[in-house]
């Protein structure tokens, strides 16, 4: 790398042009978020008087207070957090168990089952959402958090990702543990899980983000106001308050903040999970 960066004068100029272009492009990419924050801090009067002024003249925090009473924001926030956490934990455990079995244990018809599971990666959920809804409602689970949780727990991607991690661990580890009198369950929890923590973090962050942002499945499965998630709440909010720009933007800012936090903590895990997407193909 250092070698290729010893640049001549004309190359240096080109390099800085590229750098400036990239900075401009980054700002343009982030503009919708900057505009969202700026608008959330303005009064509606201010907005309609000077629509072309993108920056708030003073900090107006009233929108952030009103958002909690305009819709049951706290309830939606809590529901989303609850569902995302439960699904993430259960999905990670279930994926790890099955991935460990694929990597290290004997399973009848191993290859057939694995191909079936991986075929799920190719098949978009949208193509089975109608009959799946029918199955879930026949089980009496329509309009319940349980039904919504159950449909999210299987993940072909998660099993694939974790299998890669378990396969990279040497078999001697299992054999030594068996000699020491551990059973498979103990080996899994005490030895395998701690060693696979990097993979687990990647999968957990990926799943949590996905669940936090999920919209179509909650739209289909959750009907009662008390069960709804933040994304459904925001959509309903948009329909009711079309003209309350400030209020609307305060709502989207609050709904985005948890993702910003997750992103800043787990940026490298995101990159890793994307790189794995490349690997799997």
């Amino acid at each position: 790398m250092p070698e290729s960066f010893t640049l001549s004068k004309s190359n240096k100029l080109l390099y800085y042009i590229l750098l400036i272009a990239l900075i401009a492009f980054s700002v343009a990419t982030l503009f919708p978020f900057l505009w969202m924050i700026s608008t959330s801090l303005r009064t509606d009067v201010d907005l309609f008087k000077n629509p072309s002024n993108w920056f708030p003249t003073s900090l107006y925090l009233e929108n952030y207070k009103q958002v909690w009473t305009a819709i049951p924001f706290a309830q939606y926030f809590f529901n989303t957090l609850k569902l995302s956490v439960i699904i993430t934990v259960l999905q990670v455990v279930i994926c790890c168990m099955s991935a460990y079995a694929f990597a290290k244990l004997k399973i009848p018809f191993k290859n057939v089952v694995f191909i079936l599971f991986m075929a799920n990666l190719m098949m978009p959920w949208h193509s089975i959402m109608v009959p799946q809804f029918s199955v879930v409602s026949n089980l009496g689970l329509y309009n319940t958090h349980t039904g919504y949780i159950l449909i999210q727990l299987f993940s072909g991607f998660g099993i694939f990702l974790m299998r890669q991690f378990f396969m990279s661990l040497p078999d001697e580890l299992n054999e030594a543990a068996r000699v020491d009198g551990f059973n498979e369950w103990q080996i899994f929890w005490r030895i395998m899980i701690p060693l696979a923590s990097a993979g687990i973090s990647t999968l957990a962050i990926f799943t949590f983000t996905y669940m936090w942002n999920d919209y179509l499945a909650p739209l289909i499965y959750l009907n009662d106001d008390g069960l709804k998630t933040l994304q459904l709440g925001l959509k309903a909010f948009q329909t009711e308050h079309t003209m309350d720009y400030g209020l609307l933007m305060a709502g989207t800012v609050l709904a985005t903040i948890p993702m910003v936090i997750v992103f800043l903590i787990g940026e490298r895990f995101f990159i890793q999970s994307v790189a794995t997407t490349g690997m799997k193909n």
Binding site: T29, L30, F33, N213, Q231, A255, T256, V262, F263, I271
Partner: peptide, 12 residues
């Protein structure tokens, strides 16, 4: 900054 839009919610 290029990756960030991808992880924010479609609805927002």
């Amino acid at each position: 900054s290029f990756y960030f839009p991808y992880i924010t919610s479609m609805v927002s």
